[in-house]
Amino acid sequence: MVLTMVPLLAGLSVLQMVSGSVLESFEEVLLANPALLILVPVQIGTAGNLGSIMCSRLSTQLHLGTFEFAVDNPSIRSNSGAIIGLGVTVFALVGVAAWAIGRALGGTLGLVEVLTISLVSGTLLAVFVVVVSLIAVSTSYRLGYNPDDTTIPVVTNVCDITGVLILFAVITVVL
């Protein structure tokens, strides 16, 4: 396991540095809008949590022999729908909370703007989480690795950087 994970984690660490660089480039926008500053860690953390849930469920199905990588697999569709539904629900609540906290800290963004940014970026990220989780579990299995060991670090790290990129893309379009 160590031989598998050390190179994997080294590569993922490089991805995290890229994510930090992107985050730093938007520092002025974030400091000017406290609600958006609140969204960043929540976006990243929630994406990792959704990815962990999806990978765990798919890995369990794989170990039980019920995982079939096919679009018409009802189990994949139901798990994907649950993750996307959970993402939409969580990001709606996060948007309202970020707006309220941002207002309390002197922010000027309206509820509609913050909620739109949170929902659109969160929904796009939830869809991305589903796709990356499916690819990570099947690839890990095909390469002979235990998906329980490899997929969660991969998905959480990839979704960290993607979450930051998606959030700032949506912020740029909305604002």
Rank of each mutant, 00 (worst) to 15 (best):
L62E: 03
M5C: 10
L175I: 13
A100K: 08
T150Q: 00
M1K: 14
T116R: 08
V173E: 08
S118G: 09
A97M: 09
V94K: 05
I76L: 15
A92M: 13
G163A: 02
E27F: 01
L119I: 15
G48W: 01
V132W: 04
V94P: 00
L31D: 11
L62Y: 01
E27V: 04
L86M: 12
P7M: 13
G122N: 05
V40P: 02
V88I: 14
M1R: 13
S56E: 04
G87P: 08
A32C: 00
S80M: 10
V14P: 05
V14D: 09
V94T: 06
M54F: 10
R77H: 08
T60S: 15
T123P: 02
L111M: 14
V137N: 00
L115M: 12
T123G: 05
P34V: 06
P147Y: 08
L93W: 08
L115N: 05
L134Y: 01
L31G: 10
V174L: 11
A47Y: 02
L105Y: 09
L64C: 10
V130F: 06
Q61F: 14
A98C: 10
L62W: 06
M17P: 05
V2M: 12
I53M: 14
R103C: 06
L58N: 02
A104R: 10
A98T: 00
G11N: 12
G102M: 04
P7T: 12
P7L: 11
V14Y: 00
V18T: 03
A70K: 15
T151C: 12
G110K: 02
L8Q: 08
D72E: 14
T150A: 07
V18I: 14
T123C: 09
C159A: 12
V22Q: 08
Q16Y: 07
T89I: 12
S59C: 15
S133P: 06
T66C: 12
P74N: 11
C55K: 03
N79K: 11
S21D: 04
M54K: 04
T60L: 15
I83M: 08
E24C: 03
L167M: 08
N73T: 01
C159L: 06
F69M: 14
A47K: 07
A10F: 11
N157Y: 07
S133K: 01
Y145W: 10
V164H: 01
L9K: 15
G102L: 00
A100D: 09
A98H: 05
T60A: 15
Q16F: 01
V155M: 02
V96A: 14
V71N: 10
I135W: 07
T4Y: 05
P7E: 11
F91A: 05
M54A: 12
S25A: 13
L30Y: 03
S56I: 11
F128H: 02
D148W: 03
L9V: 15
R103A: 11
Q16N: 13
T116Q: 06
D160S: 07
V131I: 15
A47H: 07
